[in-house]
Amino acid sequence: MRDTEAPEVSIVSPVYGCRDCLSQLVKSVTDTMDASGLSWELVLVDDCGPDHPWSLICQFAEEDARVRGVKLSRNHGQHLAIWAGLEVCRGEWTAVIDCDLQDDPEMLPALFEEAKESKVHALLVDRGDWSDSWIRRAASTQFYRLVKVLAGIEIKNVGNFGIYSRHMVDTLLKFREQEVFLPMMVALTGLPSRRSRIDRSARAAGESSYSPLRLLRLAAAIVVRFSDRPLKLSALVGFAFSTLAALISVYLLFGYLLGAFTVAGWTSVVLSLWFLSGLILVTLGIHGLYLGRVFAEVRRRPRLSVMYTTFDREGGKEAIPKGSDVSVDYD
């Protein structure tokens, strides 16, 4: 059961490599939300970044109880860090924003009002024009195209920035996958949503951890987690080549019977063997990725490991001491 003193709004921000702008983030959220008249909380999730932001998060929490900190035991990645925040947020509406201030906190009150008036469970922010390099923008564009083609779900130019209802958050938390991707899973809920365009601001600190290669790996991981299209594609390719092989076999048989072939060629045989062997290995690799996904799921390991929090855990239990070695696993 959620806290009876739950705020109207929760703001979740995964923290990695942005220690230098955390003070600016907290101040911007505080000034904006106080001016809006809405009750709020800010959940900062330390994803074990290289700049060690936990001490600073604890300081913010001591100065303002509305700031709540969660420290993961190791680096889990951005999306699982978001999930850790969703696990503990209490608001009737929840916003997810990046810690580097590319998602402007000053836009939150207007987005909350738009979400309420629209009667949707998710208001997704189209990121509009970016201030990142053209290489980064081009890589993201290709990332969205690849996901659409292979996974069949369009999440064009939508990231994690958005407003989510309590019902949406509770529905998302019912997903039991070991690995998560927020925009895709919001789409999979089937709950009503809409988009609102806001151009991204310049990054206040740090740099993107998503290189073109990492975006490619992420796209492949998303496709394997949320779609079976590659399996179907491999079956279709196999069927097509089998059909082609059958037609060629008929042609070769008639040619042999008619005496058209007097010298057996080895080039075509060698090339065919190499090509088909490569195709078989690629197909086996695709199936192996899915088997690996099944293996990861059936192990049923906790997908999150929380080391510390700055607040009392739900249910009246004591807070985890900031200097203790206690860890808590959220399944």
Rank of each mutant, 00 (worst) to 15 (best):
E5L: 15
E5D: 09
V9Q: 04
I11L: 03
P14M: 07
C18W: 00
C21T: 07
L22F: 01
L25P: 03
V26S: 05
T30K: 01
S39L: 04
W40S: 09
V43I: 14
V45M: 07
D47C: 02
G49D: 08
D51T: 09
P53L: 10
P53T: 01
P53D: 07
S55R: 11
I57Q: 01
A61S: 10
E63Y: 14
D64K: 04
D64R: 05
A65W: 00
G69D: 03
R74Q: 12
G77K: 00
I82P: 03
G85N: 04
V88L: 04
R90V: 00
R90M: 13
E92H: 14
W93T: 08
W93R: 08
A95N: 10
C99H: 11
D100C: 02
E106T: 10
E113T: 08
E113A: 00
E113C: 02
K116Y: 00
E117I: 00
L124I: 07
D126F: 15
D126I: 04
D129H: 15
S131E: 14
S131K: 15
W134Y: 13
R136L: 11
R136S: 13
S140D: 01
Q142L: 14
V149A: 08
V149Q: 13
G152P: 10
K156A: 15
N160D: 11
F161G: 05
Y164T: 09
S165W: 15
V169E: 01
T171S: 10
T171M: 10
L173I: 12
R176M: 05
V180K: 12
L182P: 02
V186D: 12
A187H: 15
L188Y: 11
T189S: 02
L191W: 02
P192Q: 04
R194D: 04
R197S: 15
D199R: 09
S201T: 14
A204S: 14
E207I: 12
E207T: 15
S208L: 03
Y210G: 06
Y210C: 12
Y210D: 07
S211I: 05
R214V: 15
L215M: 08
A220W: 12
I222K: 06
I222F: 06
F226W: 02
F226I: 09
S227M: 06
R229M: 10
L233T: 13
S234K: 10
L236H: 13
V237T: 03
V237C: 05
V237D: 11
G238P: 12
S242G: 15
A246L: 11
V250I: 07
L252I: 15
Y256F: 14
A260F: 14
G265H: 06
S268I: 04
S268W: 11
V269E: 07
L271M: 14
L273Q: 06
F275M: 14
I280M: 13
T283L: 06
G285W: 14
I286E: 03
H287C: 12
L291V: 00
R293C: 01
E297N: 04
L304H: 03
Y308G: 11
Y308V: 12
T309Y: 00
T309S: 04
G315I: 07
K317Q: 10
I320C: 03
K322F: 05
S324F: 11
D325Q: 11
D325H: 05
